[in-house]
Nucleic acid binder design. Structure first.
Lengths: 190, 190
DNA sequence: ACAGCCATGTAACTCGTTACATGATTAC
DNA sequence: GTAATCATGTAACGAGTTACATGGCTGT
Protein backbone atom coordinates (compact mmCIF):
# COMPACT_ATOMS: atom_id res chain seq x y z
CA UNK A 1 0.00 0.00 0.00
CA UNK A 2 1.15 3.47 -0.70
CA UNK A 3 2.25 5.47 2.32
CA UNK A 4 3.07 8.56 0.33
CA UNK A 5 0.23 9.24 -2.06
CA UNK A 6 2.06 12.13 -3.72
CA UNK A 7 5.49 10.65 -4.20
CA UNK A 8 6.31 11.67 -7.74
CA UNK A 9 7.72 8.99 -9.94
CA UNK A 10 9.99 9.27 -12.96
CA UNK A 11 8.12 9.38 -16.24
CA UNK A 12 9.46 5.98 -17.20
CA UNK A 13 7.52 4.53 -14.27
CA UNK A 14 4.31 5.95 -15.73
CA UNK A 15 5.29 4.66 -19.13
CA UNK A 16 5.63 1.14 -17.78
CA UNK A 17 2.45 1.53 -15.79
CA UNK A 18 0.76 2.61 -19.01
CA UNK A 19 1.86 -0.55 -20.76
CA UNK A 20 -0.07 -2.48 -18.13
CA UNK A 21 -3.37 -0.80 -19.00
CA UNK A 22 -4.04 -2.82 -22.12
CA UNK A 23 -5.84 -5.57 -20.36
CA UNK A 24 -3.18 -8.19 -19.72
CA UNK A 25 -0.81 -9.17 -16.96
CA UNK A 26 2.87 -9.24 -17.74
CA UNK A 27 6.12 -10.49 -16.27
CA UNK A 28 9.04 -8.10 -16.03
CA UNK A 29 10.56 -9.89 -18.95
CA UNK A 30 7.47 -9.45 -21.11
CA UNK A 31 7.19 -5.83 -20.08
CA UNK A 32 10.73 -5.25 -21.26
CA UNK A 33 9.91 -6.87 -24.59
CA UNK A 34 6.83 -4.73 -25.01
CA UNK A 35 8.80 -1.62 -24.23
CA UNK A 36 11.38 -2.61 -26.83
CA UNK A 37 8.65 -3.12 -29.35
CA UNK A 38 6.74 0.13 -29.03
CA UNK A 39 7.93 2.42 -26.30
CA UNK A 40 11.42 2.75 -27.73
CA UNK A 41 10.17 4.82 -30.63
CA UNK A 42 8.68 7.56 -28.45
CA UNK A 43 10.30 7.25 -25.11
CA UNK A 44 13.09 4.84 -24.26
CA UNK A 45 13.82 1.17 -24.13
CA UNK A 46 14.67 0.82 -20.44
CA UNK A 47 17.31 -1.67 -19.42
CA UNK A 48 16.03 -4.95 -18.09
CA UNK A 49 17.37 -4.16 -14.66
CA UNK A 50 15.45 -0.91 -14.63
CA UNK A 51 12.22 -2.62 -15.53
CA UNK A 52 12.56 -4.84 -12.49
CA UNK A 53 13.56 -2.07 -10.11
CA UNK A 54 10.78 0.16 -11.38
CA UNK A 55 8.29 -2.67 -10.88
CA UNK A 56 9.55 -3.09 -7.32
CA UNK A 57 8.99 0.60 -6.65
CA UNK A 58 5.54 0.58 -8.25
CA UNK A 59 4.67 -2.39 -6.06
CA UNK A 60 5.87 -0.55 -2.96
CA UNK A 61 3.62 2.34 -3.89
CA UNK A 62 0.71 -0.01 -4.45
CA UNK A 63 0.26 1.03 -8.07
CA UNK A 64 0.96 -2.44 -9.32
CA UNK A 65 0.59 -5.88 -7.79
CA UNK A 66 2.47 -9.00 -8.65
CA UNK A 67 1.41 -12.58 -8.29
CA UNK A 68 4.35 -14.90 -7.81
CA UNK A 69 3.93 -18.47 -8.90
CA UNK A 70 6.45 -20.74 -7.32
CA UNK A 71 5.94 -24.14 -8.82
CA UNK A 72 8.90 -26.38 -8.17
CA UNK A 73 10.51 -24.97 -11.27
CA UNK A 74 11.05 -21.42 -12.35
CA UNK A 75 9.76 -18.63 -10.16
CA UNK A 76 7.84 -16.01 -12.11
CA UNK A 77 5.89 -12.94 -11.10
CA UNK A 78 3.07 -11.55 -13.16
CA UNK A 79 2.16 -7.91 -12.63
CA UNK A 80 -1.10 -6.09 -13.09
CA UNK A 81 -2.07 -2.50 -12.48
CA UNK A 82 -4.16 -1.80 -9.38
CA UNK A 83 -7.00 0.68 -9.16
CA UNK A 84 -4.65 3.00 -7.25
CA UNK A 85 -2.37 2.61 -10.23
CA UNK A 86 -5.17 3.59 -12.59
CA UNK A 87 -5.82 6.65 -10.44
CA UNK A 88 -2.15 7.59 -10.31
CA UNK A 89 -1.79 7.25 -14.04
CA UNK A 90 -4.81 9.37 -14.67
CA UNK A 91 -3.60 11.97 -12.17
CA UNK A 92 -0.31 12.11 -14.02
CA UNK A 93 -2.00 12.47 -17.40
CA UNK A 94 -4.33 15.16 -16.13
CA UNK A 95 -2.20 17.06 -13.72
CA UNK A 96 1.36 17.30 -14.84
CA UNK A 97 2.83 19.86 -17.16
CA UNK A 98 3.35 18.34 -20.56
CA UNK A 99 6.77 19.67 -21.44
CA UNK A 100 8.47 19.82 -24.78
CA UNK A 101 9.86 16.60 -26.26
CA UNK A 102 13.59 16.09 -25.97
CA UNK A 103 15.53 15.06 -29.01
CA UNK A 104 18.96 13.50 -28.71
CA UNK A 105 19.82 13.56 -32.36
CA UNK A 106 23.36 12.35 -32.87
CA UNK A 107 23.04 12.82 -36.62
CA UNK A 108 22.06 16.48 -36.40
CA UNK A 109 24.75 17.03 -33.79
CA UNK A 110 27.37 15.67 -36.17
CA UNK A 111 25.99 17.68 -39.03
CA UNK A 112 26.14 20.83 -36.91
CA UNK A 113 29.89 20.52 -36.59
CA UNK A 114 30.38 19.02 -40.02
CA UNK A 115 33.13 21.50 -40.84
CA UNK A 116 35.37 19.61 -38.41
CA UNK A 117 35.80 16.72 -40.83
CA UNK A 118 35.55 15.79 -44.53
CA UNK A 119 32.27 16.40 -46.36
CA UNK A 120 32.36 12.79 -47.54
CA UNK A 121 32.19 11.57 -43.96
CA UNK A 122 29.16 13.71 -43.22
CA UNK A 123 27.45 12.43 -46.33
CA UNK A 124 28.18 8.89 -45.19
CA UNK A 125 26.63 9.62 -41.81
CA UNK A 126 23.48 10.92 -43.44
CA UNK A 127 23.25 7.97 -45.77
CA UNK A 128 23.68 5.58 -42.89
CA UNK A 129 20.83 7.38 -41.15
CA UNK A 130 18.57 6.95 -44.17
CA UNK A 131 19.23 3.23 -44.02
CA UNK A 132 18.47 3.06 -40.33
CA UNK A 133 15.28 5.02 -40.87
CA UNK A 134 14.19 2.41 -43.38
CA UNK A 135 14.69 -0.30 -40.78
CA UNK A 136 12.78 1.68 -38.17
CA UNK A 137 9.96 2.26 -40.64
CA UNK A 138 9.76 -1.42 -41.40
CA UNK A 139 9.69 -2.36 -37.70
CA UNK A 140 7.11 0.23 -36.81
CA UNK A 141 4.95 -0.69 -39.77
CA UNK A 142 4.89 -4.24 -38.48
CA UNK A 143 3.73 -2.97 -35.10
CA UNK A 144 1.12 -0.80 -36.70
CA UNK A 145 -0.20 -3.66 -38.79
CA UNK A 146 -0.50 -5.83 -35.71
CA UNK A 147 -3.00 -3.34 -34.30
CA UNK A 148 -5.43 -3.63 -37.18
CA UNK A 149 -8.80 -4.98 -36.20
CA UNK A 150 -9.05 -3.04 -32.95
CA UNK A 151 -7.86 0.38 -34.01
CA UNK A 152 -11.19 2.12 -34.46
CA UNK A 153 -12.27 4.89 -32.07
CA UNK A 154 -13.34 3.33 -28.79
CA UNK A 155 -11.49 0.09 -29.39
CA UNK A 156 -8.52 -1.16 -27.37
CA UNK A 157 -5.74 -0.06 -29.69
CA UNK A 158 -7.19 3.17 -31.02
CA UNK A 159 -4.69 5.43 -29.29
CA UNK A 160 -1.71 3.20 -30.01
CA UNK A 161 -2.67 3.18 -33.66
CA UNK A 162 -2.80 6.97 -33.76
CA UNK A 163 0.65 7.03 -32.17
CA UNK A 164 2.01 4.44 -34.58
CA UNK A 165 0.72 6.38 -37.58
CA UNK A 166 2.30 9.51 -36.17
CA UNK A 167 5.56 7.62 -35.83
CA UNK A 168 5.37 6.42 -39.42
CA UNK A 169 4.79 9.98 -40.59
CA UNK A 170 7.68 11.09 -38.44
CA UNK A 171 10.15 8.61 -39.91
CA UNK A 172 8.99 9.44 -43.41
CA UNK A 173 9.52 13.13 -42.70
CA UNK A 174 12.97 12.46 -41.26
CA UNK A 175 13.89 10.60 -44.42
CA UNK A 176 12.85 13.58 -46.51
CA UNK A 177 14.77 15.99 -44.30
CA UNK A 178 17.89 13.85 -44.53
CA UNK A 179 17.62 13.70 -48.31
CA UNK A 180 17.19 17.45 -48.42
CA UNK A 181 20.32 17.95 -46.35
CA UNK A 182 22.22 15.59 -48.63
CA UNK A 183 21.11 17.62 -51.63
CA UNK A 184 22.23 20.78 -49.87
CA UNK A 185 25.67 19.28 -49.25
CA UNK A 186 26.02 18.41 -52.91
CA UNK A 187 25.46 21.99 -53.97
CA UNK A 188 29.01 22.91 -53.06
CA UNK A 189 30.78 20.04 -54.74
CA UNK A 190 30.16 17.78 -57.72
CA UNK B 1 47.98 17.13 -21.24
CA UNK B 2 46.04 13.98 -21.86
CA UNK B 3 47.35 10.91 -20.12
CA UNK B 4 44.75 8.62 -21.60
CA UNK B 5 44.45 9.35 -25.27
CA UNK B 6 41.53 6.98 -25.70
CA UNK B 7 39.42 7.89 -22.70
CA UNK B 8 35.96 8.12 -24.22
CA UNK B 9 33.93 11.13 -23.29
CA UNK B 10 30.17 11.52 -23.10
CA UNK B 11 28.64 12.89 -26.27
CA UNK B 12 27.73 16.11 -24.53
CA UNK B 13 31.46 16.77 -24.10
CA UNK B 14 31.91 16.55 -27.87
CA UNK B 15 28.90 18.75 -28.35
CA UNK B 16 30.42 21.46 -26.18
CA UNK B 17 33.77 20.96 -27.84
CA UNK B 18 32.03 21.41 -31.16
CA UNK B 19 30.58 24.73 -30.07
CA UNK B 20 34.14 25.93 -29.61
CA UNK B 21 35.04 25.28 -33.25
CA UNK B 22 33.33 28.34 -34.65
CA UNK B 23 36.29 30.59 -34.24
CA UNK B 24 35.75 32.29 -30.92
CA UNK B 25 36.76 31.79 -27.33
CA UNK B 26 34.02 31.48 -24.76
CA UNK B 27 33.55 31.51 -21.03
CA UNK B 28 31.57 28.73 -19.41
CA UNK B 29 28.72 31.12 -19.07
CA UNK B 30 28.72 32.02 -22.74
CA UNK B 31 29.02 28.38 -23.70
CA UNK B 32 25.92 27.62 -21.68
CA UNK B 33 24.07 30.42 -23.46
CA UNK B 34 25.12 29.15 -26.82
CA UNK B 35 23.99 25.66 -25.93
CA UNK B 36 20.63 27.03 -24.84
CA UNK B 37 20.29 28.85 -28.11
CA UNK B 38 21.05 26.11 -30.58
CA UNK B 39 22.09 22.81 -29.05
CA UNK B 40 18.88 22.39 -27.11
CA UNK B 41 16.91 21.72 -30.27
CA UNK B 42 18.98 18.72 -31.32
CA UNK B 43 20.75 17.55 -28.27
CA UNK B 44 20.27 18.97 -24.79
CA UNK B 45 20.63 22.16 -22.88
CA UNK B 46 23.13 21.05 -20.25
CA UNK B 47 22.86 22.48 -16.77
CA UNK B 48 25.29 25.28 -15.98
CA UNK B 49 27.07 23.12 -13.47
CA UNK B 50 27.61 20.45 -16.09
CA UNK B 51 29.08 22.92 -18.52
CA UNK B 52 31.72 23.84 -15.97
CA UNK B 53 32.48 20.29 -14.92
CA UNK B 54 32.68 19.19 -18.54
CA UNK B 55 35.06 22.05 -19.30
CA UNK B 56 37.20 20.95 -16.37
CA UNK B 57 37.37 17.45 -17.74
CA UNK B 58 38.12 18.64 -21.27
CA UNK B 59 40.91 20.74 -19.85
CA UNK B 60 42.31 17.74 -17.98
CA UNK B 61 42.34 15.82 -21.22
CA UNK B 62 44.04 18.70 -22.98
CA UNK B 63 41.26 19.10 -25.52
CA UNK B 64 40.51 22.61 -24.39
CA UNK B 65 42.57 25.28 -22.73
CA UNK B 66 41.39 28.11 -20.58
CA UNK B 67 42.97 31.48 -20.02
CA UNK B 68 42.08 32.91 -16.65
CA UNK B 69 42.14 36.64 -16.31
CA UNK B 70 42.30 37.75 -12.73
CA UNK B 71 42.07 41.50 -12.71
CA UNK B 72 41.29 42.80 -9.27
CA UNK B 73 37.65 42.28 -9.98
CA UNK B 74 35.83 39.29 -11.32
CA UNK B 75 37.79 36.18 -12.25
CA UNK B 76 36.85 34.83 -15.65
CA UNK B 77 38.21 32.00 -17.74
CA UNK B 78 37.95 31.94 -21.51
CA UNK B 79 38.21 28.58 -23.21
CA UNK B 80 39.41 27.63 -26.66
CA UNK B 81 39.79 24.30 -28.36
CA UNK B 82 43.33 22.95 -28.72
CA UNK B 83 44.68 21.11 -31.72
CA UNK B 84 44.39 17.89 -29.69
CA UNK B 85 40.78 18.89 -29.23
CA UNK B 86 40.34 19.30 -32.99
CA UNK B 87 41.85 15.86 -33.48
CA UNK B 88 39.64 14.29 -30.83
CA UNK B 89 36.53 15.86 -32.30
CA UNK B 90 37.40 14.67 -35.74
CA UNK B 91 38.19 11.20 -34.43
CA UNK B 92 34.78 11.12 -32.80
CA UNK B 93 33.03 12.28 -35.96
CA UNK B 94 34.87 9.79 -38.11
CA UNK B 95 35.20 6.81 -35.86
CA UNK B 96 32.19 6.32 -33.69
CA UNK B 97 29.03 4.51 -34.57
CA UNK B 98 26.32 7.00 -35.34
CA UNK B 99 23.40 5.47 -33.54
CA UNK B 100 19.75 6.19 -33.90
CA UNK B 101 18.36 9.42 -32.42
CA UNK B 102 16.53 9.12 -29.14
CA UNK B 103 13.20 10.78 -28.76
CA UNK B 104 11.72 11.45 -25.34
CA UNK B 105 8.32 12.50 -26.52
CA UNK B 106 6.06 13.14 -23.56
CA UNK B 107 3.19 14.06 -25.85
CA UNK B 108 3.28 10.81 -27.78
CA UNK B 109 3.69 8.90 -24.55
CA UNK B 110 0.53 10.48 -23.19
CA UNK B 111 -1.30 9.87 -26.43
CA UNK B 112 -0.29 6.22 -26.34
CA UNK B 113 -2.16 5.69 -23.09
CA UNK B 114 -4.89 8.15 -23.91
CA UNK B 115 -7.59 5.67 -22.99
CA UNK B 116 -6.62 6.15 -19.34
CA UNK B 117 -8.28 9.57 -19.19
CA UNK B 118 -10.89 11.73 -20.93
CA UNK B 119 -10.54 12.44 -24.65
CA UNK B 120 -10.87 16.15 -23.91
CA UNK B 121 -7.71 16.06 -21.82
CA UNK B 122 -5.75 14.40 -24.62
CA UNK B 123 -7.00 16.98 -27.09
CA UNK B 124 -5.87 19.70 -24.69
CA UNK B 125 -2.41 18.14 -24.48
CA UNK B 126 -2.12 18.09 -28.25
CA UNK B 127 -3.30 21.68 -28.57
CA UNK B 128 -0.80 22.77 -25.95
CA UNK B 129 1.88 21.05 -27.96
CA UNK B 130 0.88 22.91 -31.12
CA UNK B 131 1.30 26.17 -29.23
CA UNK B 132 4.71 25.17 -27.93
CA UNK B 133 5.77 24.15 -31.40
CA UNK B 134 4.89 27.62 -32.62
CA UNK B 135 7.16 29.13 -29.98
CA UNK B 136 9.98 26.74 -30.88
CA UNK B 137 9.54 27.57 -34.55
CA UNK B 138 9.75 31.27 -33.83
CA UNK B 139 12.89 30.86 -31.71
CA UNK B 140 14.61 28.64 -34.20
CA UNK B 141 13.68 30.92 -37.09
CA UNK B 142 15.41 33.75 -35.26
CA UNK B 143 18.53 31.61 -34.92
CA UNK B 144 18.37 30.63 -38.56
CA UNK B 145 18.01 34.25 -39.65
CA UNK B 146 21.04 35.22 -37.60
CA UNK B 147 23.13 32.89 -39.75
CA UNK B 148 22.32 34.63 -43.02
CA UNK B 149 25.30 36.12 -44.71
CA UNK B 150 27.65 33.26 -43.98
CA UNK B 151 25.49 30.25 -44.73
CA UNK B 152 26.75 29.42 -48.19
CA UNK B 153 28.78 26.25 -48.84
CA UNK B 154 32.29 26.74 -47.49
CA UNK B 155 31.32 29.59 -45.21
CA UNK B 156 31.44 29.50 -41.41
CA UNK B 157 27.79 28.77 -40.75
CA UNK B 158 26.97 26.53 -43.68
CA UNK B 159 26.49 23.39 -41.61
CA UNK B 160 24.60 25.15 -38.82
CA UNK B 161 22.26 26.63 -41.40
CA UNK B 162 21.57 23.20 -42.88
CA UNK B 163 20.81 21.97 -39.38
CA UNK B 164 18.59 24.94 -38.61
CA UNK B 165 16.59 24.42 -41.79
CA UNK B 166 16.22 20.77 -40.93
CA UNK B 167 14.94 21.80 -37.52
CA UNK B 168 12.43 24.18 -39.04
CA UNK B 169 11.18 21.42 -41.32
CA UNK B 170 11.01 19.12 -38.33
CA UNK B 171 8.86 21.46 -36.25
CA UNK B 172 6.60 22.14 -39.20
CA UNK B 173 6.18 18.40 -39.70
CA UNK B 174 5.45 17.88 -36.02
CA UNK B 175 2.75 20.52 -36.22
CA UNK B 176 1.14 18.70 -39.15
CA UNK B 177 1.33 15.36 -37.34
CA UNK B 178 -0.27 16.82 -34.25
CA UNK B 179 -3.09 18.31 -36.30
CA UNK B 180 -3.61 15.00 -38.00
CA UNK B 181 -3.87 13.24 -34.66
CA UNK B 182 -6.36 15.85 -33.46
CA UNK B 183 -8.47 15.23 -36.54
CA UNK B 184 -8.30 11.50 -35.88
CA UNK B 185 -9.52 12.02 -32.33
CA UNK B 186 -12.47 14.04 -33.57
CA UNK B 187 -13.66 11.21 -35.81
CA UNK B 188 -15.15 9.38 -32.86
CA UNK B 189 -17.01 12.26 -31.30
CA UNK B 190 -18.64 15.42 -32.52
C1' DA C 1 24.41 -32.06 -25.28
C1' DC C 2 24.21 -27.60 -26.21
C1' DA C 3 22.49 -23.17 -27.75
C1' DG C 4 19.23 -19.89 -27.12
C1' DC C 5 15.54 -17.98 -24.89
C1' DC C 6 12.85 -17.11 -20.45
C1' DA C 7 13.16 -14.96 -16.04
C1' DT C 8 14.97 -12.31 -12.17
C1' DG C 9 17.75 -9.75 -10.13
C1' DT C 10 22.54 -7.19 -7.71
C1' DA C 11 26.51 -3.96 -7.86
C1' DA C 12 29.07 -0.40 -9.52
C1' DC C 13 29.15 3.43 -12.05
C1' DT C 14 28.21 7.73 -14.97
C1' DC C 15 25.47 11.34 -16.64
C1' DG C 16 22.95 14.99 -15.62
C1' DT C 17 19.85 17.52 -12.54
C1' DT C 18 18.42 20.59 -8.64
C1' DA C 19 19.58 23.36 -4.96
C1' DC C 20 22.67 26.18 -3.12
C1' DA C 21 26.58 29.61 -2.39
C1' DT C 22 29.31 33.47 -3.71
C1' DG C 23 30.41 37.68 -5.51
C1' DA C 24 31.24 41.29 -9.47
C1' DT C 25 29.24 44.23 -12.94
C1' DT C 26 25.67 46.78 -15.38
C1' DA C 27 21.22 49.20 -16.04
C1' DC C 28 17.60 51.82 -14.21
C1' DG D 1 20.24 51.37 -4.16
C1' DT D 2 18.56 47.56 -6.03
C1' DA D 3 17.43 44.27 -9.58
C1' DA D 4 19.13 41.78 -13.37
C1' DT D 5 22.75 39.75 -15.47
C1' DC D 6 27.59 37.93 -15.60
C1' DA D 7 30.46 34.37 -13.81
C1' DT D 8 31.97 30.22 -11.33
C1' DG D 9 31.48 26.68 -8.95
C1' DT D 10 30.09 22.62 -4.82
C1' DA D 11 27.14 19.01 -2.88
C1' DA D 12 23.65 15.80 -2.91
C1' DC D 13 20.94 13.10 -5.44
C1' DG D 14 18.37 10.28 -8.96
C1' DA D 15 17.79 8.05 -13.39
C1' DG D 16 19.52 4.87 -16.14
C1' DT D 17 23.37 2.01 -17.94
C1' DT D 18 26.68 -1.90 -18.24
C1' DA D 19 28.43 -5.94 -16.42
C1' DC D 20 27.61 -9.76 -14.01
C1' DA D 21 25.28 -13.85 -11.67
C1' DT D 22 21.95 -17.41 -11.50
C1' DG D 23 19.18 -20.90 -13.11
C1' DG D 24 14.98 -23.10 -15.55
C1' DC D 25 12.94 -24.22 -19.96
C1' DT D 26 12.83 -25.39 -25.12
C1' DG D 27 14.25 -26.92 -29.57
C1' DT D 28 17.46 -29.48 -32.31
Amino acid sequence: MSQEPHASLPITAYALLGLLTFGDELTGYELKQRADLTLRFYWVAPATSQVYSELARLTEHGLVEGVTSQGEGRRTTVYRITSEGQDALRAWLDGSRVGFPTLKHTVLLRLLIGHATEPARIRAVLEEYVDELAVALRDLRAVRDSLRGSDAPGEAFFYPSVVADWGLDYFAAETRHTRRALARLSEGEP
